[in-house]
Design a protein around this nucleic acid. Structure first.
Lengths: 228, 228
DNA sequence: CGTGCCGTTGAAGGTTCTCAACCGTGGTGG
DNA sequence: CCACCACGGTTGAGAACCTTCAACGGCACG
């Protein structure tokens, strides 16, 4: 029964109110409980879109274009729900930034089984719209912003999602490498490094080691991010 | 009662099966029937996210970053459902490419009212996931692709959505200007023009006037688009 | 203490942007 | 009817930003 616990976390976390026992048990039948070590791919059964619930850890959703180029489409943390398409213009995969535990559902069955539960479906819709809005903001950054603006934008966004705010500043423990940040912002690691240096020199951030970043003035940083 | 017809189109087009009369009449109470002339903004009541159904015409969803830079996030044609967020990192607006007619719903009420209709909500979820997947593919293009690949990607995508296929080629009547294409691909009009020239010289497309593009070999074009 | 990975820094190069001029089309008015 | 203008698109030259290539530094691990 210990094997079951992540699924129970999922049931408690995602729907606003617990789904009918029947729905829960049907979902339990199609779920795959998986783990991935830091740097490894989250194993997704081939053949169809998947819905993945991140139980613990942190992950990146990677799209591969031709010629080995990789674009990180989004980062996901525990509690997030990710839709991973199988057939698209690019090939997608989910990769662990830190040791991760996830629940994998075939999307088609997942959506069919939850359809009877209006509240549950409502949550799914809400979450997918949030994901869409985030993806659009990312598209704006990739399409129209300079390297500095992209990094500022990234830091502000991460601050809002996983930062610890205190007295006007925000401390951030990034789970991803410079390379990951570059692959997410459409830039190279060198450019990321230089922009970190530039923001540091401007007094907007402080860094300590590879992972910790302090946003000294998030509002000012948001301005530099080109946000409205 | 003639005023009512777009709403009926919506009811017939969007849900797989007609919603309960009660749901339909509640939706009818919150809908705003709007029009926008070519080049004009689709009027959205301020104060909250909106869901817009495009009855006829063609539209672009624009995000404004600071300094007047504009990024076209997506194009939408008749039958499409668009979510327009009010509070985001950037300011969004819907603009008509051709004279357009649309139905505007406040998102919150729309989602609440349709929640009781499982099939309807299912469709909404499916459509928002499609939008998310398209947005991700766009993010890959903006983050990791050259100008030529972006344009090829755009043309292939438009071909799939609004092209007329015939004997291995695909004729496309674009409703948007070169500037719009540039704003969508994160490039300038000059670069768009040069890449059109380059694809024309390569024999992959033919153009006639401003609007008509023939994709001579869509498969080859998809290869140039850097698709997997 | 050596090794390997990640991050930083510097110099050269390339793709796209910016600026500018020119062309073709469609609409307007004399 | 045709000249004129406005607008969108095309083409060219130079500049800017980011990438590429390369070397170096620091931290973790064996």
């Amino acid at each position: 029964m210990a094997y079951c616990r992540p699924f129970e976390t999922f049931l408690k976390d995602v729907p606003r109110c617990p789904p009918a026992a029947e729905v829960a048990s049907s979902l339990d039948k199609i779920v795959h409980n998986v783990r991935a070590a830091r740097g490894g791919m989250v194993p997704l059964k081939a053949g169809g879109d998947m819905i993945v619930y991140i139980v613990s850890g942190a992950t990146k959703l990677i799209a591969s274009a031709s010629a080995g180029r990789e674009q990180i489409v989004s980062f996901h943390f525990s509690g997030d729900l990710v839709s991973v398409p199988a057939d698209a213009s690019h090939s997608y995969g989910l990769c662990a930034l830190a040791d991760a535990e996830a629940l994998v559902f075939p999307a088609k069955e997942f959506l069919e089984l939850t359809q009877s539960d209006a509240a549950f479906h409502g949550i799914l819709l809400e979450r997918s719209l949030t994901a869409l809005h985030r993806c659009r903001d990312k598209a704006v950054a990739l399409g129209r912003k300079s390297a500095e603006e992209r990094l500022a934008s990234f830091l502000v966004g991460m601050g809002e999602r996983i930062g610890l705010s205190a007295r006007g500043n925000c401390t951030l423990e990034l789970p991803m490498s410079r390379r990951d940040i570059g692959d997410s912002l459409g830039l190279t690691i060198e450019t990321i490094s230089r922009q970190f240096g530039s923001l540091r020199k401007a007094g907007l951030i402080e860094t300590s080691g590879r992972w910790v970043v302090v946003l000294c003035d998030p509002a000012q940083l948001a301005l530099r991010a080109g946000h409205i």
